[in-house]
Amino acid sequence: MSDVPGSFTWRVLHERHPSLIARVREATPYDARRNRALDALLEEIEGIMAPPEDSAHDRDLWESWDRGHIGRRWDEVPFLWAESYFYRRLLSAVGYFEPGPWRGVDPFEPFKQAELEGEAVDEELRELDALADAPAGERDQALILRALWGNRADLVFRISAGPDLADREAGLVADDSALLWSLAGTGRVCLVADNAGSELLPDLVLIDHLLHARGTGQVILHVKPLPYYVSDATVTDVLACLRRMAAAGGEAGRVAGRLRAAIGSDRLVLRAHAFSCAPLPYREMPVGMRDDFASASLTIMKGDLNYRRLVGDRAWPHTTPFAETTAYFPGPVAALRTLKSEVAVGLTGGTVEALERTGRPWLTTGTHALIQARA
């Protein structure tokens, strides 16, 4: 929940979201109508949650996802629900769904593009040249860690994170990477993406490694059907990353070429399911998505939001077994995630005690990460 003033979840709704509205307004010169709609949303999130517009194309869908929350205060409904609905309402405010000049214009594209064109991405892609000739086991570990720590690239997190984030000590609080690799066989692997840009790039390199080096028969990449949570990946973002890698040349260019060929032969399949934007845990996933995951030898969930949806966005004791919270999932599953919210399970009592003894925050700063898996 997010009804305790000063709590992490309360600050997201009352500080991070208003800040994001201001950033969106600064990044794109919206017309007067769109600016009025953003003003109205800014005022609304301090009060009562309004329903989708009567003419909204997805009104029925959101009403089916409602659990009696619409009509209540924003900070009195489950945090996962309120946070997801905020991004749906933000898209509506900027005219993303309406006929007219703003239809389909991603309000987060300026942030994504600037991040993808940064010098840090150039360096990351150049490093692939040296990694290409590394021993197989070394490449496995390097690529899984790159995909894991790429989750720091979350743009909405950067907006509110302190400038010293990159300098803080970071470390794994759980590491099931050996089990993850043992489950990623020669059949089908599903990867549920999180952020675009410099997080999606190592995800795509990991997918290429599975297909090209590890002999995985097919990878299904789940992305968002709409711009969401600022930097969540869409099909458009996948294509932008492929172009970025191709332009870099070297091993990055070769990876891009192999991935384009894999898409053309259906060895890499893109999915953009409506439920990917649902304000609900994966426990409530529809049949089509469940069938996808059930058919895979392994499903890899990337990022904080997918983790919260996977284990349930609840105040679990941190020692609650990961296998227990994911027992409903229809197949083997793994999570790659840097910690940016208060939800964490599957940790040992000793690990939790050691982290708490430091006196420093570790759940919400992105300075710690985990690799968890269950067969």
Rank of each mutant, 00 (worst) to 15 (best):
S2I: 04
S2Y: 00
V4F: 02
V4E: 13
R11N: 13
R16Q: 14
V24F: 07
P29V: 05
Y30S: 00
D31W: 01
R33S: 12
L38K: 09
L38A: 09
L41G: 12
E43W: 00
E44M: 03
I45G: 06
M49V: 14
A50Q: 15
A50V: 11
P51W: 01
P52A: 05
D54H: 10
H57D: 14
H57W: 04
D60W: 03
S64P: 08
W74I: 10
D75C: 12
D75M: 04
D75T: 08
E76D: 15
E76I: 01
V77C: 08
V77S: 10
F86L: 11
G100S: 09
P101H: 12
A114I: 01
L116Q: 11
E119C: 00
E124K: 03
E124N: 02
L125H: 07
E127N: 12
A130K: 08
L131D: 11
A134P: 10
A134W: 07
A142I: 04
A142S: 13
I144D: 04
I144N: 01
I144H: 03
I144C: 07
W149H: 03
I159K: 03
I159A: 12
P163S: 09
A166F: 01
D167W: 00
G171N: 12
A174F: 00
A174E: 09
D175G: 01
L180N: 02
W181N: 09
L191M: 14
N195I: 08
S198T: 08
L206S: 02
I207K: 02
L210N: 06
L211G: 09
L211N: 09
A213F: 05
G215S: 10
T216E: 04
Q218G: 05
I220T: 15
I220K: 11
L221G: 06
S231R: 05
L239M: 14
A240R: 15
R244K: 13
A247K: 10
R254A: 13
G257K: 07
G264Y: 03
L268K: 10
V269R: 15
R271N: 10
A272P: 09
A274M: 08
F275K: 04
A278L: 05
G303S: 07
R309T: 05
G312Y: 03
T320E: 14
A323C: 08
T326M: 07
T326C: 12
G331W: 03
L339C: 13
K340W: 06
S341H: 06
A344I: 15
A344C: 15
G346K: 02
A354Q: 08
L355S: 01
T358E: 00
G359M: 01
R360G: 00
L363T: 06
R374Y: 06
A375L: 06
A375K: 12
